[in-house]
Simulated scan of single mutants.
Amino acid sequence: MTDIGALLKAFIYLISTSLLYPVLLLLVVLTLFVIVHAGTFFAEWLERTRLKKCRPQDLPEVLQHGDPQGIVSHRVILYLQRLKQVTNRPPFLETAVENLLQESTLALWKSMDRLRILFRVGPSLGLIGTLIPMGTGLAALGQGDMTRLSADLVIAFTTTVTGLAVGTAAFFFFTIQRRWIEEDIKNMELATELLASPSERTPHALHEPAAN
C-alpha cells in the first residue's frame, strides 16, 4: 500500500513539474496576442473618436438616404454594402435579410470569444505557474538549496504578475469592445428595418392603391 501511495505521489509530481514549461510558453503566447490586439484596439478607438456625432433622430435618414461614411463604424458600412446586395435579389428576400443580420451579429460576438477566454485563462495559467515552482522551491528548501529556491520564487511571482496582467488587459479590451459591438448591432438592425422593409413590397403592390 505504501508503494502504491509513493508511486501515485511520484506520478502526480511528475505531471505537475512537466506542466511548467508548457504554462510558461502559453503565457508568452497570450502576452504576444494581447500586445497585437492592443494595436487593433487602439486603431478602432481612433476610428471611433473621429466619427461625426449624429443625433439619434437624424440617424435613420442618414442610413436610408444619406452617406453614413464617417458617421458609423466600418463594420456597419460593410454590413450596409452586403445588405444592399441582398435587397437586389427579390426571391426569399425576407429570409435572406434575416439570415444576413443573424450571421453578421453572430460573427461580431464570435470575435469576442478569444478575449473572453483570455481574461479567464490568463490568471489561471498565472496561478498554475506560481504553484508549480513553489512546490519545487519547498523541496529545494528542505535540501538547503537556497539558490534553487530563489530561482523558483522568481518564476512563481513573475508568472503571477504576467497572468494577472494578461487577464486585466483582456478584460479591459472585452468591456470596451462589447459596448462598441452592441452599438454596431443596434445600427445594423436599424439599417435592416429601413432598407429591407420597403423592398419587400413588389411593384405590383405599389400600384394597387392607384388602381383602386
Results as ranks from 00 to 15, higher is better:
residue 65 H to Q: 12
residue 47 E to R: 04
residue 30 L to H: 06
residue 162 T to F: 08
residue 119 F to P: 01
residue 145 D to S: 07
residue 63 L to S: 05
residue 187 N to Y: 02
residue 65 H to A: 15
residue 85 Q to D: 14
residue 158 T to I: 07
residue 132 I to K: 04
residue 184 D to I: 00
residue 72 V to E: 05
residue 16 S to P: 06
residue 96 A to H: 08
residue 192 T to E: 00
residue 61 E to F: 12
residue 167 G to E: 00
residue 186 K to V: 11
residue 167 G to I: 01
residue 146 M to F: 11
residue 78 L to M: 13
residue 212 N to Q: 14
residue 209 P to T: 04
residue 82 R to A: 15
residue 100 L to P: 02
residue 90 P to A: 09
residue 185 I to C: 01
residue 75 R to I: 02
residue 79 Y to G: 03
residue 154 V to W: 09
residue 82 R to N: 12
residue 180 W to I: 01
residue 200 E to I: 13
residue 26 L to P: 01
residue 210 A to G: 08
residue 47 E to H: 09
residue 74 H to V: 08
residue 7 L to W: 09
residue 6 A to C: 14
residue 163 G to Q: 01
residue 30 L to F: 15
residue 4 I to D: 09
residue 148 R to N: 09
residue 46 L to M: 09
residue 58 D to M: 07
residue 163 G to C: 02
residue 212 N to L: 15
residue 156 A to S: 00
residue 79 Y to I: 04
residue 209 P to H: 01
residue 69 Q to L: 07
residue 81 Q to H: 13
residue 200 E to A: 13
residue 5 G to T: 10
residue 31 T to N: 08
residue 142 G to Y: 10
residue 22 P to R: 00
residue 195 L to K: 05
residue 143 Q to F: 08
residue 9 K to F: 11
residue 167 G to S: 11
residue 157 F to P: 03
residue 167 G to N: 06
residue 118 L to S: 13
residue 133 P to S: 03
residue 35 I to P: 09
residue 98 E to T: 11
residue 172 F to Q: 04
residue 110 K to N: 11
residue 12 I to V: 15
residue 151 A to W: 08
residue 182 E to Y: 03
residue 177 Q to S: 10
residue 116 R to I: 10
residue 139 A to L: 12
residue 88 N to I: 05
residue 180 W to A: 00
residue 211 A to W: 11
residue 174 F to M: 08
residue 78 L to N: 12
residue 159 T to K: 05
residue 187 N to G: 06
residue 56 P to T: 09
residue 162 T to D: 05
residue 59 L to P: 07
residue 73 S to P: 00
residue 169 A to V: 04
residue 22 P to E: 06
residue 40 T to G: 14
residue 188 M to R: 00
residue 143 Q to G: 15
residue 167 G to V: 00
residue 50 R to T: 11
residue 53 K to L: 12
residue 171 F to Q: 14
residue 44 E to S: 12
residue 87 T to G: 02
residue 3 D to N: 11
residue 47 E to W: 00
residue 189 E to A: 12
residue 82 R to P: 06
residue 34 V to S: 07
